[in-house]
Structures are given as C-alpha cells and as structure tokens.
Amino acid sequence: MNDFALVLVGIAIFVGIVGIVIPILPGAILSWAAIGVWAFEEQSATGWTVLAIATAFIGASQVVKYIVPERKLRDAGVPRRSTLIGVLLGIVGFFVIPVVGMFIGFPLGVYLSERHRLGNHDTAWESTKHALRVTGLSILIEFTGTALAAATWLIAVLFL
C-alpha cells in the first residue's frame, strides 16, 4: 500500500474515532472498515491478524457498550421506556437542529418521560443525570475498543 493510501486509512480511522465522541458518523464501523481495507490491500498474515484483533476489540466493545449501561440503568431504576423516548427525541432533535439537536433531544426526552412517570422535578432530574452518565460510559466503552483497534493497526504499520 502506498503512503498516500496509508494516510487515507489513518484519516478514516481517526474520523471514525471522532464519530464515536461526536455521533454523526458510524464511528467504530468506519474505523473497522478502514482497517479492513488496509488488511485486504496488504494481503499478509500481519494484515489479517490486525483485522482479527481489531474485530475482537470493536466487536467486544459493541456488545459491552449495551450490556453494562443497561444493567446500570436498571439498577438505578430508570426504565427502558425513558431511555427509548430520549433516543427518539434525540433522533428528532438531530434533524430539527442539525448536529447539536441530538444532545438536546436525548436528555429532554429522558427528563420528560421521567417527570411524567415520577411526578416531580428533583427525582426526574436525578434519573436524567444518571442516564446521561450511563450514556457517557457507553461512549467511553466504544471509544476504548476502537482506540485499541486503531493502536493495533498503528503498531503494525509502524513496527511490523
């Protein structure tokens, strides 16, 4: 693979990682696909090994990012319904107010659902803050798996 193509793969991996933190792009999938393109271009044992390791890191993070937060929300007493309403309002917000609407819609949806369910501001706000922390944890889990995959690729490119 020539240097220009290698730089493009690196940029795609980086954009994917940014897409995890600022969820506009399918971050982990973009990073994994870039590593896959590199591996297919390399056609070597190193390339296939890196792709397998990246798949394991990203795949594990995709599973864990749903299991751990779901359990934490359940333990805190925040029902799935509130999270679902938050996600739906986040999606609507994304289209109504491009880019930042999701960050407004999700907490607003969770808050409104919890306010309706619980009947007062203080407990609804506590549930909303808990849902936001858990969402941050989910992002951190996906970020970590993708960053480990990217680091594996970078080590292979630089040293192998």
Rank of each mutant, 00 (worst) to 15 (best):
W32S: 04
I97Q: 03
P69E: 09
F40I: 04
V99N: 09
I67T: 14
Y111L: 09
S82M: 08
R115D: 00
A60Y: 08
P79A: 11
I53L: 15
V68G: 10
L88S: 08
A39Q: 00
L108A: 13
R74Q: 15
A56S: 04
G105E: 01
E41C: 03
I35L: 02
E114A: 05
V96R: 03
G47I: 02
S61G: 08
A60D: 09
I35S: 00
P69T: 06
I58V: 15
L84W: 13
R81F: 08
L89A: 09
W32P: 02
I104W: 05
R81Y: 13
G47W: 03
V96K: 07
L51K: 04
L108C: 02
L51W: 08
R74M: 13
K65C: 14
V78D: 08
F40W: 04
I97A: 10
G109S: 10
T46S: 10
V110Q: 12
G86T: 04
G86H: 09
R117K: 08
E42Y: 01
Q43K: 12
A56P: 05
V64D: 10
L73A: 06
Q43Y: 00
I91W: 06
E41D: 04
W38N: 00
G47T: 05
I91D: 11
F106H: 03
T49G: 12
I58R: 01
I53V: 15
L73T: 06
A33E: 00
A39K: 02
F103M: 02
A54S: 14
I67Q: 13
F57R: 10
E70L: 14
S113V: 06
E114Y: 03
W38C: 00
Y66N: 09
L108V: 13
M102E: 07
V37F: 13
T83G: 15
Q43W: 06
G90L: 11
V78Y: 08
V63H: 02
Q62V: 07
E70G: 15
A52T: 13
A60I: 15
L88W: 12
Q62M: 14
T83K: 02
G105A: 06
L84E: 14
L108D: 00
F103K: 01
S44H: 01
I67H: 07
Y66A: 11
V78T: 15
S44Y: 01
I97R: 07
R74L: 14
P107W: 11
P98I: 05
R117M: 07
G86K: 08
L51P: 06
Y111D: 01
V87R: 08
V68L: 15
S113D: 04
R81D: 12
H116A: 12
I85R: 10
F106P: 03
V68T: 12
G109A: 03
S113G: 06
A33C: 08
R74E: 12
I104A: 06
L84V: 13
L108K: 01
F103T: 11
G36K: 02
E41K: 05
S61Y: 05
W38M: 05
G77Q: 11
T49W: 05
S61F: 10
L108I: 05
S44A: 03
V37N: 11
L84I: 14
L73E: 05
I104F: 07
Q62A: 13
I35N: 01
G77E: 01
Q62S: 12
L84P: 06
A56G: 05
W32Q: 02
A39C: 04
R71Y: 15
